[in-house]
Write a protein that binds this DNA or RNA. Structure first.
Length: 896
DNA sequence: CACCTAACGTA
DNA sequence: CGTACGTTAGGTGT
């Protein structure tokens, strides 16, 4: 098809007054009372965004900017101290929404501008004047009538009318029709009329009617002043009396068209908007429904770069053709995509697509391979020298293993790479990544209608889809690697996360052995205790109710029994363990105690139940370790979660006795880092006193307490040690005075004093924690010792709650994340050493600072030494990395 | 049936 | 008003 050259449309510049519109939106939607479950109001951000999307949809501007006021005083305040002095304080619910609007605009890649000393209006006037001079048609959207002075043949104003959906379009004719004044006359008229919102005084007895009449009669304010004596009557006297005020009003109303703004209208283009970011933002604001759809529909069609999809030539080698195809495949890294299902340490592959460089991809159905095909495929997949890129490789790896095939030569995992690029994301779907990093759409042909149609008898659409995915993975791997290389993530990906995939897969495949009968016995024991607690509770209250329902519990506790109220939560008053313990102490009633026991026992029972359900045919539990979930870099464990098995109470520890050494092995061994996060703090802060406390050889909490209170370590009592222990641990979480006071049951003032005393001794720690946050605010992200980043845009939020939350995340992320880095490196080194020493012992679990091993007969001493050596040397800190080891038949016995 | 909340286990 | 997770049960809305 011949390309036709479209007539270039005249460039159009859309300028919005951010504050003015946000404020109008806020009041327009006030009745709706839009608020998220954590108390963030969203009327302004919702209304503003909705209006913005509508204007973009209806006007289709080529250029756009949103201008904002600043908190600094402007030249108008210098001229007139009382300027806007009568403004009522910003409503509480409005505060913080402006920064959310900033986030929306940034995510949509819409430029936003502000300049100290000037109002949004002045920026708009300046840009409108410049844009108009450059031949653009300008559209201004605002709720401020002063903007009418800017209207001319090139400049139109859209003024909000009550609400936000209703707008009036002011051309010169429309201004004339409404006010019987020209746009140029409007500020003259406004100066006489005054403006109560800006605290510009009017002339007593002179309203809009008289003001307009004078300007029409004299043509302009200047002329009126020149011939002011011609104005007759009492109003004339008043005018002469207030002439000074009027002239000042006129100067203040005049919008500045020459603000020193270092932005050219032509540069105000819309960038490629962040699709995932918008989803995330709208999710966090709990905005659902049509706005999201309208937004994507409007902005989606303005995404020319995304229009081209991936393309691939499909090869479907038939029986005995696979070996030939693989042999003839172009050199270079191939992208692989798998269809199948994975989990619990195993999996099944239904189809494989291989996309080498060159644009032709093969689709293989494993059930249709001849022996020769299979051998060739096994050879290729297991060849370290044939580079491969896979998206989320651990599942396919497990599935291939289940079929006796290896997956080697993995040089990129696009899911891991994307995780390192932006670890905060909830998901890393291939389709989203393709759009984000390659600006390409990964469309499904099967879903597009091929499936089940007459032309799809052999599932060709599905084959094509998988081939496209393989192709996308191959291209995405290049894109993401390049992206990461600019952010220092290459080492972390290539040397840590990527090799860890295989280690985790091995751990999942191995699983941990359980004693099914023992756990079943435990379940019925806990079950009986639950039943008893339920009966007691019903008897004490005198009626039947569901102890597991916080709602019913509230009714019983606070309405029926009239017990004192606890802390307020969204749905009433909390019935959590702290509150129940408090109630037990406050009242004579025995119910809270019974409820506490019920909670305990229920939790234990359901934990055991969950475990039993996950025991495989081999008597072992195969958890899944997730490598791309935690924003800090930690692993997580699911189905079941083996990282939260009880340990604190004796009752809970009984569950750990259900995890036992497997047949053919000698014992379980656990190895954990002691106080790794505190050691990282000592290392990163360089605080000499804290470092010395670690080197002292004394119990760490005891040693720090001794230093804080300046007494010998031997004299540190249990109480003092407990206080300092709480401090030590709280630091890395951004613990507040309030939080510390609550935890130690002491007054806030005392907690603050304790903190001050602590920092008196460990000043370097305080400086370090403050420096982390300051640095993060400047950079927008934090970094671990291996360069793992965490982005925290909320650090500059003007919503206090969000900002302080981000600050705590900022000081925790490098500490928790560095600990995660270290144990990941340790796992790799342990794995390598096991192989190097030819040991059969194997790693089963990772619980953040602990590794659990199954020891092969005769290897106990060797493994113990290996674990201590490899974990202790994983990273060189300014303090030693101490590792403690426990051994026993069960996980509980192997604990410390 | 899908989703949210409260509660609670771990590091 | 302490970070990071996953699971469960109850309750609500589609």
């Amino acid at each position: 098809m011949p390309k036709t050259e479209a007539t270039p449309a005249r460039p159009s510049l859309l300028l919005l007054d951010g504050h003015s519109l946000a404020y109008r939106a806020f009041y327009a939607l006030k009745e709706a009372n839009l608020v998220t479950t954590d108390g963030q109001h969203t009327e302004a951000v919702y209304g503003f965004t909705s209006m913005l999307v509508n204007v973009l949809r209806d006007e289709r501007p080529s250029h756009v900017a949103v201008c904002f006021d600043r908190s600094e005083p402007t030249f108008r305040h210098t001229e007139y101290a009382e300027y806007k002095a009568n403004r009522t304080e910003t409503p509480e619910d409005f505060r913080g929404q402006v920064s959310l609007i900033f986030e929306v605009l940034d995510t949509l890649r819409i430029p936003r501008l502000s300049l100290a000393g000037f109002e949004a209006d002045d920026l708009i006037a300046t840009l409108a004047t410049r844009g108009s001079a450059e031949g653009m048609s300008v559209l201004i959207v605002t709720g401020d009538r002063d903007a009418l002075q800017l209207v001319d043949d090139n400049v139109t104003v859209l003024m909000t009318r009550r609400g936000i959906s209703d707008m009036t379009r002011f051309t010169p004719d429309a201004v004339m029709e409404k006010y019987e004044l020209t746009p140029a006359q409007y500020p003259d008229f406004a100066a006489i009329r005054g403006d109560s919102s800006d605290n510009l005084k009017n002339i007593p007895g002179v309203g809009e009617k008289t003001a307009a009449k004078w300007i029409r009669e004299f043509g302009s304010l200047e002329e009126l002043v020149n011939r002011v004596d011609e104005v007759k009557g009492k109003v004339g006297d008043k005018l002469r009396e207030h002439l000074g005020q009027v002239m000042m009003n006129r100067r203040l109303t005049e919008l500045k068209r020459d603000v020193p703004l270092d932005v050219e209208p032509a540069s105000l283009t819309m960038g490629q908007f962040d699709r995932e970011g918008i989803h995330k933002l709208l999710d966090s604001l709990q905005i659902r429904g049509e706005l999201r759809e309208r937004l994507f529909k409007t902005l989606g069609s303005a995404e020319p770069e995304v229009e081209d999809a991936f393309e691939v030539e499909l090869a479907m080698p038939g029986p005995d053709e696979v070996a030939g195809w693989l042999a003839a495949m172009p050199a270079g890294r191939a992208g692989l995509a798998f269809r199948g299902s994975y989990g619990s340490g195993t999996g099944r592959i239904d189809a494989i697509a291989i996309a080498p460089p060159g644009g032709t991809a093969a689709y293989l159905d494993p059930t249709r391979l001849t022996q020769a095909d299979e051998a060739a495929l096994r050879e290729w997949l297991g060849d370290e020298a044939r580079e491969k890129a896979v998206h989320d490789a651990k599942g396919p790896m497990l599935a291939l293993w289940a079929q006796g095939m290896e997956l080697r030569g993995l040089s990129c995992d696009t899911a891991l790479a994307a995780y390192l690029a932006t670890p905060g994301q909830r998901t890393f779907e291939l389709d989203d990544l393709a759009v984000r990093y390659l600006k390409r759409e990964l469309r499904s042909e099967a879903e597009a209608g091929g499936q089940g149609s007459l032309f799809d008898t052999d599932g060709e659409a599905e084959a094509r889809d998988l081939a496209l995915r393989a192709q996308a993975v191959r291209e995405l791997a290049e894109g993401l690697e390049e992206f990461l290389s600019t952010r220092g993530g290459t080492h972390l990906l290539g040397e840590v996360e990527l090799p860890l995939v295989t280690v985790l897969a091995e751990m999942e495949r191995t699983g941990i052995c359980t004693d099914r009968e023992y756990l079943a016995g435990l379940e019925s024991e806990f079950g009986a205790a639950v039943k008893q607690a339920v009966e007691e509770a019903h008897r004490v209250v005198g009626e039947q109710f569901n102890l597991g329902s916080p709602k019913q519990l509230q009714t019983i506790l606070f309405d029926k029994l009239g017990l004192p109220k606890t802390k307020k939560i969204k749905t009433g008053y909390t019935t959590d363990a702290d509150a129940l313990a408090w109630l037990a102490g406050q009242t004579e009633h025995e119910l809270p105690t019974i409820l506490l026991r019920h909670r305990d026992q229920t939790k234990l029972r359901t934990t055991v139940e969950g475990l039993i359900k996950e025991i495989g045919d081999d008597g072992r539990i195969h958890t899944t370790f997730n490598q791309i979930i935690a924003a800090t870099g930690r692993l997580s464990s699911e189905k079941p979660n083996l990282q939260n098995i009880p340990i604190r109470t004796a009752e809970g520890r009984r569950i750990r006795q259900g995890f036992v050494v497997g047949e053919g092995f000698e014992t379980l061994l656990t190895a954990d880092y002691s106080q790794i996060e505190l050691r990282i703090m000592a290392h990163l802060s360089g605080d000499e006193s804290l470092i010395a406390a670690f080197e002292s050889g004394h119990d760490f909490h005891q040693a720090t307490a001794a230093r804080v209170f300046d007494i010998p370590p031997e004299q540190v009592g249990g109480d003092l040690r407990a206080k300092i222990k709480a401090m030590n641990y709280g630091l890395a979480y951004g613990l507040s005075d309030f939080g510390l006071s609550g935890q130690l049951n002491i007054p806030v003032a005392e907690a603050r004093a304790l903190k001050d005393e602590y920092f008196e001794e460990f000043g370097g720690v305080r400086e370090f924690l403050q420096a982390i946050v300051a640095q993060a605010r400047k950079d927008g992200y934090t970094e671990t010792i291996l360069g793992r980043r965490r982005y925290l845009p909320d650090l500059t939020s003007d919503n206090r709650q969000r900002r302080e939350m981000a600050e705590r995340m900022a000081l925790n992320a490098p500490i928790q994340g560095s600990a995660a880095d270290i144990i990941k490196v340790a796992m790799l080194n342990v794995r390598r050493a096991l192989a190097a020493e030819g040991l059969r012992s194997r790693m089963l679990l990772q619980v953040h600072d602990e590794l659990v091993f199954e020891v092969a007969p005769g290897e106990l001493d060797a493994l113990r030494a290996l674990a201590i050596r490899e974990m202790g040397s994983a990273y060189s800190l300014r303090v030693p990395l101490e590792v403690s080891v426990g051994v026993g038949r069960t996980w509980e016995d192997a604990g410390h």
